[in-house]
Design a protein around this nucleic acid. Sequence first.
DNA 1: GGCCAGGACTCAA
DNA 2: TTGAGTCATGGC
Length: 292
Amino acid sequence: MEITLSQPINSEELLWFLSRGYDETIYKVEGKSIYRAFLVDNEKMLVRITPGSLSVKIDWLVGQPDQSVIDFITEWFDLDTDLSGFYALLRADPVLEYMADEYKGLKLAGMPDLFEALCWAIAGQQINLTFAYKLKRRLVERYGDFIDYQDNRYYIFPAPEVLMQADPEELKAMQFSGSKTAYLIHTATAFVDGRISKEMLMALPTEKQLELLTGLKGIGTWTANYVLMKSLRDPGAIPYGDAGLLNALLGHGIISNKKELQDMHALFQRFKGWEAYLVFYLWRSLAIKPVV
DNA sequence: GGCCAGGACTCAA
DNA sequence: TTGAGTCATGGC
């Protein structure tokens, strides 16, 4: 089946971003397609997603076409958002205007699954991304379900019910720190207890969302905003303090050191309503070469 | 070997 | 509310 788009997307940029040299566990990019397994009503599915310019092709390799998977993919790649407002702001900025052409049509790749987004953020706190992906792989391979298909194994992110009961010693043996171990189990427990869910968050205003998230152990300002950006798709979310963000701002000469952030705040002020996209594009700019 | 990594916590002042 | 110390381990 195919999703028809009203705005063209940059599928090459998307595929490149999704596979940008890290060892991702939860999906596989091969050629011009993305492979990902899903669990829908206890049924495991495997799809091949092939983004074009004005359409996204989805093939069910295992299972039957399912609307919830289509919705997930639409959200994952932010297919419905029109970026023209963002590009108008970029073009008005002498330092960042190049992004409007160079990354044109690049959609913010999100993480629709809130639990996965939180776990990923916890795993990635304060460590380099290469190591963070290693931790994620160990976690998913140990606790996640999977589908075997043509010599490949496709993993599904573990459910909170499973992670809640993980043995802390086992997590530590996978090189999760004591803190990360505790945070992961606390977070999984909060999901199982019904203290947090994506639906719950979606019904709240931003301040209450941040309050609920940062009320969980291990979820600080950075993580809370990170998941608002990647999972709730709050266009105004900014992961304050993010190391990559600060480095990108330094690289572009927008700030001159990591402690004086007035110019960063002024920049975001100008990008009201597109802050999350600005962060995503700044992250994107880190990936190939530092822009000096 | 030292600094940094897509931080958060606790505790003191 | 701000700052220092702590956790914890790999990557470069």
